[in-house]
């Protein structure tokens, strides 16, 4: 229980360490939703958690605002939100460590683009810290079309055995479909230290990815900056430097 409390306390100003009781109540309300199932009303949650109703309503609104809970589409009840999964990492000490999240949150304060952290563990692309304030990027889309996004290209460049042998499907009209062109692009990734996608996975969106390394300098993940096409470009020296500095701060933390 202790690590969870500390984690929640570190995460959010709404539940600062000065309010251990509030964190306890927040967790008991999440527990209530997990137990009672999707659609549970605020009143039922308050009763189950043993929290006064006015306090419960206020805290439920905070939990929804932060993505730990979601409101039902008719607004009358609650279900568990995506960010609840982060509590598990705090409980068992596995990735993403609180420091990854802290660094990512700090970096997000300095960019207007979506900033996501991905891991390449076991040759598989998965997000370990997604930007809650920007459009969610579909991990399934990225994973299925590695050649069509910057993170995928980064993974392919550093794990050549994953390079696709079959035909490269077109996701948009800008997607690379020729193996020769893709190979040259992946070589470019290795030479320059960054990968770029320009409307290749989603029309109107571009992204930049730079590698995150472990203590032995192996590439174990990527920092992914995602935003409007023409706004995100590798020609923007400041942006690229920001991404590279961010990735170096995450070295050894994935």
């Amino acid at each position: 229980m202790t690590p969870i409390r500390r984690r929640a306390g570190n995460d959010d100003a709404s539940f600062s360490g000065q309010q251990p009781g509030a964190v306890q109540k927040a967790l008991s309300m999440l527990e209530a939703v997990a137990h009672l199932g999707p659609g549970t009303s605020a009143r039922d949650i308050a009763a189950f958690a043993g929290v006064p109703s006015a306090t419960a309503y206020r805290m439920l609104n905070l939990l929804v605002a932060d993505g730990y809970l979601v409101r039902m589409p008719d607004l009358s009840g609650f279900a568990l939100g995506r960010r609840t999964a982060e509590l598990a990492y705090a409980a068992n000490g596995s990735a993403p460590s609180s420091s990854v999240h802290k660094v990512a949150e700090d970096l997000r304060r300095h960019t207007r683009f979506g900033l996501h952290i991905a891991s390449f563990a076991d040759g598989r692309l998965r997000f370990v810290d997604q930007d809650p304030d920007h459009d969610a990027v579909g991990i399934a889309l990225l994973r299925h079309f590695l050649h069509a996004n910057a993170l995928g290209k980064l993974l392919l460049a550093h794990h050549p055995r994953l390079r696709p042998a079959s035909a490269l499907p077109a996701v948009t009209e800008h997607t690379i479909r020729d193996h020769g062109v893709l190979d040259r692009e992946l070589d470019h990734v290795l030479q320059t230290g960054y990968a770029y996608e320009d409307q290749e996975a989603l029309v109107g969106r571009a992204a930049l990815a730079v590698p995150i390394r472990d203590e032995t300098a192996h590439v174990v993940g990527g920092l992914y900056l995602h935003g409007a096409a023409r706004r995100i470009t590798p020609d923007d020296g400041g942006l690229l430097r920001f991404a590279l500095d961010g990735a170096s701060r995450l070295t050894g933390r994935l």
């Binding site: 999707p38 279900a79 568990l80 939100g81 995506r82 609840t84 969610a136």
Partner: peptide, 8 residues
């Protein structure tokens, strides 16, 4: 994407 996978 906002909902915890498996929770609904």
């Amino acid at each position: 994407a906002d909902i915890l996978p498996g929770a609904g």
